[in-house]
Each structure stands twice: as structure tokens, then as C-alpha cells.
Design a protein around this nucleic acid. Structure first.
Lengths: 378, 378
DNA sequence: GGAGTTTGCTTTCTGCTCGCAAGCAAAGTC
DNA sequence: GACTTTGCTTGCGAGCAGAAAGCAAACTCC
């Protein structure tokens, strides 16, 4: 109950972030506020240069044409980064969330923490130069658990990021607000806003690649946990002899287990060739994945579970089968779908989070899908 | 934003529900509202007979003594019911949540759905007669998943409750508001408010008895899921040969597995005698429980996991061991504690939910720990 | 034991905001 | 060209919260 007027401006912005473009009347209906209040709030936002009237909306209605409102995109640029163990993907977007540029390059995983941060910051600032507006916010997803304090743990595939030097280095390099969160959390956010989990309030994502990660969202909100451990289903000691599931289903785990079984594979993906379809290794993989999917399902009861990550791409043809098994186990099973944004889910989600962080500064409530990310605290 | 004045009254009530008794000034501090506003709101509540000034608070402060405020208890009586597969436990409480009476008796599991509802309703109304005030709300916890719609599923140990006749019968028998939810959800609510999970916003509960159940709370809110399936970790196919975990750790499952192994047990509890400490069956049980605990931990990252249920009582001495294993698996492991309210956690939690439902009618926000239960919809 | 002080609560008053209703504007319909 | 529909803005009244001042009841200290 700070300032009611400001709160209403925030509500308008929040609505505009999700429904874009829209009209004053539509905002009034969705927010439940009166048209008069919306008009007054929009007036301020337009004066502030945050919102702009765009060309009139095409409408089948009879009366006066509504004036479409949209966010002013050119104000500034944000970056969403998915710092993977092997590949780093970046998306630059404008203030309105429109994608401006995307690229990927190998992660310099050979660098120590501070140098890695410098490399990342240099790459992003370098490539965002000359876009007209300055970089206003950066969100970085990384393969580890990010605590409320900003501390990173559980990142075996890119251990440098656990070093406090990494986050502090990032903050030093860029003058702008930097937020850090788990890569899968961002990927789920991306899929919720622009991908396979659109309009699913309860959704989950599982990524399988170099590591196993999961993210859970309930009522549009991504669950974090004080230490960021929510979703670490790879820790489940449910494999044979109590092996952790992450050793059963991730790329390095598959290679090692194949070697131990005397049938070495050239690449983890080979396990999903037809010739291995009935191999014990493949059966164990399926079983382990089934446990993960069931755990995700009963942890948050998502309407949809999005599968992403390098290994998951090889599973596209088997989704129906997994879905069927899941349905046999649970009365109500979630839909199992591949990531619609592909390997860029995480970067896109990070960019969305960065945009959100800017609007949060303007008073927008963390509405549907909001409240993500963690600002890199000192 | 309905009526701001009413909203403030609700905020005062919500605060009073959690901090009881308290003073006007204390409420003002906690809610952030001005003392004037609180005074005005309290005035109305006292006039309505919902709140009362009680004897002055003993204080070490120097100035004028604050007048303690408390809820008026005698207005009405609520009942919390824990309808177990074998035992039914009931708690009667007054409007202020003070326990009036508790008892338990064998569940008439031989009865069909409608008759079971009649038996339950008759028992509760009969025993609550003559308490001065009428029964105003009843909350029933049962061993199954309760959907938003009110439909019950996943109740193998008391299948009658899945029959729509049961809930409709309950509603017919009692004229008052009846709410139904999963028994473990209520048990966790009880432990959060009066027991082992007090002042833990993020908490979880696992009950092991005739069935395996779990409940998760994040930020004081118990997670439900549209179909009430959140927490059904017994469905995890993580036992040997893909056995569901509920078959590994529950009473009936233990007996059957012991028989299959050629070492029949008289009672499931016998598995936890010293003589079985190193038996393969016990090892398998420990492993299965470890998986459940890990899954609960990474599903919601609770500060504390409360263990309840008949089997869990036998585990009291082993909690340290489980805790140690959990700590070895996870960087940050939750505390593992037995249910402080014993076998009445569920009934007490249900009674708290019933009280909450009454205050929700008066405008109290579902604050910390609120928003539980599901009204038995038609 | 009286003056001063601290704390709790109430009352008065001011400023702010919202929603209603009326008015204006812009489109389509007849 | 009058009428209707729809979108937005403006004028007005009511409601509410908070600041500040006032009253009340304790304690402390001289």
C-alpha cells in the first residue's frame, strides 16, 4: 500500500507486459479498474516515455476505434545469457522484449572465474554496442543452483561459476543491473512466455544434457527455494545401487556407464540410435528418466512438462512412449513436449527476466510469470 | 480492492489469527498500517463481537499499558477430522482455535460411501452437541488426493471416499460449511501452526503408515495442484524392478514384501526391531525412504521435514541416521523431526483450517499458512 | 506526592484517489 | 444527416488513510 496511484501504474505496466499491444478499455477490463483510472495512469506513462500510442487497432466493432498502446522499445537494450557448460547463448532484446540479435559461441570453460566473467561481460557489451540504446539489464542463467544470497552451488559442469569471484566480476564489468539464476529456471520462463508452456500456469521443465536440471512453476511463478535447490532431481539416489539419477541420464554419465558396460559409445546421443533401443543401458536410461518425470509431476503437478537440453533433443521421437508410461503411473499426467524455443529457451527466458527487472523498477508487479531471477547480491 | 476499510479489517483479523493475543500497537507495527487505522478497524470488530479486549498485558515498558485484544472464542465451534484408513480422530475447537475436546475411534471402513459419511457426520454432530455454540465449520482430512473440484482420487486404503456419494453425503448431513483435503496437507498445517514446523515458512511433511503421503509448503502456503496430486511421491517407480515406493515403505507393503522374502512379520513395526536392523528388507526400506526424503527436499527445499504416521513412529530413533545420509546427498539438507502433535496432527490441522474458513468469511486474507482446504464443491 | 516522561490509544483534519456519471470524440448504421 | 455504438476524458462526490494533536494511563525521579 505504498502509493495507490503508483500501484495502478504498475498494474497497467504489468498487464501491458503480458498483453501487448492492447487498449485502455481492455486493460480496464482485465485489471478490474475503472476506465477513468486507466486513462489517468496511461497519461503518466506516456508522459514518462514508457508507453506510446501506436496505430489504431483493427477491430470488428462498430464504434470509435480504440487506440492501441504499446511499450516503447527503443528506450534501452537488455541481454539474456545462457552460460552453458560448453556453449554460451545470448539474446539481445529491446525494452519491449522484441529480440534484436542472438548468437552462440563456445563457452571459455578453460578460464578461471574472474577471467570467465570478464570474457562474458566483454562479449555482451561488445556485441550490444551500436544498437542505439545502452545496455540496461543483463540476466545470466548458469548450470547451477543459485541461492537467494547470490551464492552458486551444484555446478559440477562449470565449477568456476561457484566462485564468488565470478559474480562479483560480472557486476564489476557491467555497470548495469545483473541478475543470475539457474539456467533451467530461465528456460522455463522463456517457454512459458514464448514457447511450449504458454498459458500454462503450472508448468515444469526438465533439461538433460551435460547435467540434469528441472524447474517448477506454480501459478505462473517459478519456485526457487532459499538455496536454489528446488528442482535438483538429479540428486535422487534412485539408480541401481543408489546411483544418483544425474549419473544415469546425462551425457558424461551415459558415456561412462557405456564404457563400464563394455559397449563404449562415441557420443551420448548414440544411445538413442535404433541399434541400442533394447540395450540394458537404454532401458536403465528410460527408467531413470521416468523417475525424474514422475518426481517432477508429483512435485508441482504441472499441466505440461517441457523437455530441453542436448540429450532431450534425441528423445523427440520417444516422447509419446514416455508420456504413455507416465499416464499409466499417474491418474492425471502432464503433457510432455519438446522445447519450442529449442536451445535458446534459456537465453530468451533470461532476456525476458531482464526486461522484467526493468519494469519492476518502474513499479510493475511481478504478475503472471513474474518474480524470477535473483539480483546478484554482494 | 473491494472495500479498503473491509480489507484492513481482514488484515487485522489475519494478524490476530497468527499472533494471539496482541495489542493495537503491535498490529499496527506488523501490518504497517497507522495506529489510527488499526483503532478504527478494531472498533468495528469489537462492535461485531468478533474481537474482545481482555485483561491488560503484562509489560516491562514504562508507559500506559496496552490493552490486549483477542478473538472471541465462544461464538461457535468447529471440528477437525482426520479420517484415517483404520482410525478416525476428531478435534473440536472454539472460534479462537482453542481445543475443546478430542477423541479417536476406529474408522467404520466396512461401510459404503454414503453410510460412512452419515456415520462420520453423526459422530461429530453428536459429540459437539451441548457445547453451548453450534457447529459452524467442519474440515475433513482423508487419505487421498483431493482435486480443486472436490473429487477424490488415489485413496486405495479407504476407497469409499472416492465415491461422489461420500462428499455429497457429508454435505447433506451437516448444514455447515464442509471442507475436504488430503490428510497430510492438514497434518502439515497443524505442525506449522502448533507443532514441529512452527515458524518455518518452507516446510514439508511425510507420513508413513497404511499409505505414504507428503505435503509441501512454500512461503507458508501448502501446495495443492489442480488435482491434488502434489506430494504423491509414493507413485515414484524407484523401487527394485520399478516398484512404486509406496509399496516399499507402507505397512501393508512391508508385510507383503516380508512374506515374499520368506521372513513374515507379525506387524510392520517389527521391521524396525534390532533383529531386523541389518536385514535386506530393512535396507531396502531405508533406501526407499531416502529417495522419498530427497525428492521432498528438492521439490520444495523445506527448512524442516516432519515425519508422521504409524510407521514413522517406529523410526524416531533412526532420524539422526536418515538426516546424516540426507546431508551427505544434498549440500543443504532440511531438519528431520518427528510430528510434535503426534497422531493428532491431521485432526488439529483440519480444525485450524475450519477456523480459517470462518475467518475467510469475515474477510481475513489467507495470510501466512492460510489458503488451505477445499470447500466440498457440488 | 507532584512534575515530568513514556507509551497507548483516539480524534480531528487534511490530502489523496477512485469510481460514477456526464460529456466529448470518432467510428459505423440506417 | 440523424442515430447508435464504442472509446476515452473530465467534473464531482465519497471514502479512506495518515499526520498531528489531544487525551489517558502507567512509570520515574526528585
Amino acid at each position: 500500500m505504498t502509493d495507490l496511484r503508483e500501484a495502478n501504474r504498475g498494474a497497467v505496466l504489468s498487464d501491458l507486459l503480458v498483453h501487448r499491444p492492447t487498449t485502455r478499455t481492455a486493460i480496464a477490463q482485465r485489471t478490474g479498474l475503472s476506465a477513468a483510472t486507466i486513462s489517468r495512469a496511461v497519461e503518466v506513462l506516456v508522459a514518462d516515455g514508457v508507453v506510446r500510442e501506436v496505430s489504431e487497432v483493427v477491430s470488428a466493432n462498430r464504434g470509435r476505434r480504440a487506440v492501441a498502446l504499446d511499450l516503447v522499445g527503443e528506450r534501452s537494450v537488455v541481454a539474456g545469457v545462457d552460460l552453458g557448460a560448453s556453449t554460451t547463448r545470448v539474446v539481445l532484446a529491446d525494452f519491449a522484449g522484441a529480440e534484436l540479435r542472438r548468437w552462440e559461441e563456445p563457452t571459455r570453460s578453460d578460464l578461471p572465474a574472474a577471467a570467465l566473467a570478464d570474457w562474458l561481460a566483454g562479449m555482451v557489451t561488445g556485441r550490444s554496442a551500436g544498437l542505439g540504446a545502452g545496455l540496461a539489464a543483463v540476466s545470466v542463467g548458469l548450470p547451477g543452483a543459485v541461492a537467494e544470497s547470490g551464492a552458486v552451488s551444484n555446478a559440477p559442469n562449470l565449477p568456476q561459476v561457484m566462485d564468488a569471484e565470478f559474480t562479483s566480476g560480472l557486476r564489476r564489468a557491467g555497470a548495469v543491473g545483473i541478475r543470475v539464476d539457474n539456467d533451467v529456471n530461465y528456460a522455463l520462463l522463456g517457454e512459458q512466455r514464448r514457447g511450449a508452456a504458454a498459458d500454462a500456469g503450472d508448468a515444469a521443465m526438465v533439461t538433460i544434457g551435460a547435467g540434469l536440471g528441472a524447474a517448477l512453476a506454480i501459478d505462473g511463478r517459478i519456485l526457487h527455494g532459499r538455496h536454489g535447490l528446488i528442482g535438483e532431481f538429479g540428486q535422487l539416489p534412485a539408480g541401481p545401487m543408489g546411483t544418483r539419477l544425474e549419473h544415469m541420464v546425462t551425457g558424461p554419465g551415459i558415456l561412462r556407464r557405456a564404457e563400464e558396460a563394455g559397449v563404449p559409445l562415441a557420443r551420448p546421443q548414440d544411445l538413442f540410435d535404433d541399434e541400442h533401443r533394447l540395450s540394458p543401458l537404454r532401458t536403465q536410461f528410460d527408467h531413470a528418466l521416468q523417475i525424474v518425470l514422475t518426481a517432477v509431476a508429483v512435485a508441482s503437478e504441472p499441466e505440461v512438462v517441457v523437455l530441453g537440453g542436448g540429450i532431450a533433443e534425441s528423445l523427440a521421437g520417444d516422447l509419446d512412449r514416455y508420456q504413455a508410461t507416465l499416464g499409466a503411473t499417474l491418474q492425471v499426467a502432464p503433457r510432455l513436449v519438446p522445447a519450442a524455443l529449442g536451445s535458446f529457451s534459456g537465453a530468451i527466458g533470461a532476456a525476458i527476466d531482464a526486461v522484467h527487472s526493468l519494469y519492476a523498477d518502474l513499479g510493475a508487479e511481478p504478475g503472471f510469470g513474474g518474480g524470477h531471477g535473483r539480483s546478484a547480491a554482494s
